[in-house]
Nucleic acid binder design. Structure first.
Lengths: 420, 420
DNA sequence: GCACTTATTTCAAGCGTTAATTTAACGTGC
DNA sequence: GCACGTTAAATTAACGCTTGAAATAAGTGC
């Protein structure tokens, strides 16, 4: 098969596409007047007027006051109607299932969370997710028909084939057909993806990645992951497992990683690995009971006084810098964003050292094009990131949603009747 | 600025796009009948007919016999006319400038090459390139007006900004405005890119990458590079320097690389580095005079008898496997293609070991999705790869070329005159 | 109230796609 | 040898979209 560049398109795709361009502009840089939209999108004033009038008629866009012009008729400002529909984001985490409902502007409207003390039995998780969807709808007072879709972030590889399959070694999930299982309990559109990719998208839309087209969001928690954004959207590769940065080799023949290989980045910079290295350096004194978060914070404090702790952190910064340099050399991004709870913790103290180490290991030219920054959304943005998936779909289709499709069919049926 | 997904488009872009879809299909999987095109592209029979009749009228597409149908009117087979226009590819290499002229089917029609004994003085190189263009046109008997464009592959980073700038440390070039300099001597459309990326594209179009949408072409010569293909096209990053795989760190604190950093992949698997490691292992006996090619071939032969040579190669395979595993983990490609003169030499003997090392260092899931293969085009495909750039542009614009643009303008001017 | 400025809407013209219809080209069977 | 059925390609009518120009709306300043 050859490399076909675009899909074929019809005259209706054209409108959908232009509607998407307008809506996207309005969503990320709104409010704006029709005239401004015309200037920003390159569309003629007439087309913008048409598209906008459709969007207003369907309730997607509303007016938002007006703004004086230089003496003439004032601009009518337009913006996406946050209350048009809702979206739901789900974070299937290590310890709990979090379900959150947002309006289109990503304002949190309702949330519930369920503990997962009893492990990650698939049926139980599915049940909690479905219960959560009903619960947040009830709490926020919206009917399921007003929900654009549900985004679900899980840990592990999410394969988007004929059927969505989740491979989550952490949960002991092997090729779980999560979408099919959920489908039995709800009719809402489902968007299942890796949680790290979701958080990366949240950071790109609303955090440190705003305005970037090429970036990598690095996520350091107990383990290490990354979300790669190329041309403004998350890169997934051929089976959606792209971005496994944590298991790239940075030291051939080095430390054993929990994945079985040697010298993985995760074996040096993940919270678990950092603490382990610290314990080894202190000759095996092990502190059980304290959470990883607390232990890492303690290590950071200890490092203020120099000594072994400082050495471990320096080495961590070196490895992290080298890993980031690899991303810079391979992807030539505009920005590297360091996130995840451990990433934020480490980054807040070590960013300068990490950046210096990256400079040492990266080529000058791409390094000079890249800024290395801390994430802005905190470590709990998975559900929100997941909720961006239905919004993304909504924007990309130019604001079409199930109800308006029904309208169209009804309309056509009516017409046919007229002509008969 | 927000993340705008597509460009705005007009009804004419629509035709251009569909024309491109048809042409692309015909170029890579032709010949085909109109009906088959309709089935393959999803376009209606009418549209295919319209598009094809335009393409035939402009000479881009020609009929190629017919094929019986099941009893009815036979299929008329269509194909891209190889002789419609020509393209030129230029390889500005370490030792010489190669200029080659191809027809649209990438059949070589003429070639010249100039030695670069006197170094890489910019003016001299520019002069040779321009002379080469004239020479191959003369040799093939085509006028410059029949050349779609010139693709030029250079070593180093090619920055596509307001002006194309070439940063080539190997040549001592720093921000050379190559396009502007060439522009003084020719009016042909110029497409300047990194030679490794060009070779990668050649391998994708006509070599081991055919039919792949996500792949990485790894190029090992004296140094090490890579060309990353995502969604069927070369990934460049924000300033076109993506793919610097050779300088990713695989051994923090390891061998010193010629780039100044420590532990780069290139310091282990580039031909220069492999030979250097071999010399070190043999305690400094150095053989001057022999070319790198000959020396590496000799090393491979020596390794058949085991001993130090075999050890060096084993280590090389391990490092190369780890480097490839990193690509697999980060990009989740369908295929990794090993090319470059040293890559082909090493790969022909070590592919099994390299693959085994990659399996050890990569995660199981993405590794299982990836095949690791040798390149098929040999090490001298840079000029051919460069020549694919104007062809790519031609296909992507649906077969529009300078002359037909002139026609269109004339046509429009005529119309305006009529109506006035 | 009037001139002026600027934003938005309206409308004809030009194109492009689709789906249905017509025409063309071929094999088969009488 | 000729009508018939089958399949491919060309033609045509209907409809939708964008554009650019002209008209209209909505303000300001005098």
């Amino acid at each position: 098969m050859g490399v076909v560049p675009h899909q074929r398109s019809t005259v209706r795709d054209l409108r959908r596409g232009n509607s998407a361009v307008v809506l996207w502009q309005l969503y990320f840089d709104g409010p704006a007047s029709r005239q401004e939209l015309s200037r920003l999108t390159g569309l003629s004033a007439g087309t913008v007027g048409n598209v906008v009038s459709d969007l207003i008629a369907s309730g997607v866009v509303i007016t938002a006051g007006s703004m004086d012009s230089d003496g003439g008729r004032p601009h009518v400002l337009l913006r996406v109607n946050p209350g048009y529909r809702s979206v739901i984001g789900v974070d299937v985490g290590e310890t709990c299932v979090r379900v959150e409902l947002f309006d289109l502007a990503m304002t949190l409207r309702a949330k519930v969370s369920y503990e997962l003390a009893g492990g990650h039995d698939v049926e139980f998780v599915v049940d909690r997710v479905l219960a959560g969807i009903k619960a947040v709808c009830a709490e926020a007072g919206v009917s399921e028909g007003d929900v654009l879709g549900v985004g679900i972030g899980v840990s592990g590889v999410v394969e988007h084939g004929a059927e969505v399959l989740v491979h989550g070694q952490t949960f002991g999930w092997d090729a779980v057909p999560l979408e099919r299982l959920l489908r039995a309990g709800t009719d809402l559109p489902l968007h299942i993806d890796n949680g790290a990719k979701n958080m990366g998208q949240a950071e790109m839309w609303f955090g440190a990645g705003r305005g970037c087209r090429h970036a990598v969001v690095v996520l350091i928690g107990s383990g290490v992951g990354a979300s790669i954004i190329t041309h403004g959207s998350t890169y997934r590769g051929v089976t959606s497992s792209a971005g496994e940065w944590g298991h790239t080799t940075v030291h051939v023949g080095g430390r054993r990683c929990r994945c079985g290989a040697r010298g993985c980045l995760e074996a040096y910079v993940g919270a678990e690995a950092v603490l382990e290295r610290y314990q080894e350096a202190r000759r095996g004194r092990r502190r059980r009971g304290a959470s990883e978060e607390a232990a890492l914070a303690e290590l950071l404090d200890a490092a203020e006084r120099g000594g072994v702790a400082a050495e471990v952190l320096d080495e961590t910064a070196t490895y992290l810098g080298a890993g980031i340099a690899n991303l810079i050399n391979l992807f030539n991004p505009e920005r590297i964003i360091v996130g995840g709870w451990a990433g934020l913790l480490l980054g807040s103290r070590l960013l300068a050292k990490i950046t210096a180490a990256a400079a040492e290991h990266a080529l000058d030219h791409p390094f000079a094009q890249t800024s290395i920054e801390l994430g802005r959304l905190g470590p709990d943005a998975v559900a929100m990131g997941a909720a961006t998936l239905p919004v993304e779909h909504f924007l990309a289709t130019g604001g079409a949603s199930a109800p308006s499709d029904r309208d169209r069919i009804a309309h056509r049926a009516g017409k046919r009747h007229d002509s008969a």
